[in-house]
Amino acid sequence: METDGETNQESGKLEFSLDVPFPSAREASIALRSLSPDREPRKGGITKHLTVAGSTLSVRWSADEARILRVSVNSFLDHLKLVLETMEMFGPPVDL
């Protein structure tokens, strides 16, 4: 898992990124679709963008305040952990 965080000099926003490798593209896509539907609880001040390329799930955050960014990243990590544990216990995915 790779992470990166910095302040964007142009927009003044705090940015954070996370790349999570999965065993296969299918599993990365399942994680994406499980983690995507719920909106951020707070309106404004933060955006979170999830994408999949190959078997890697990538998340990009952009936030006004470090406090809001930390809460969102923490909560995402809790959710990600639960999805990974679910895959471990009840996977691998069946053939479609």
């Binding site: 399942i30 499980s34 999805v83 679910t86 895959m87 691998p92």
Partner: peptide, 9 residues
Amino acid sequence: LVARTVAQL
């Protein structure tokens, strides 16, 4: 989250 994940698996 768990419901979505197992439904897909």
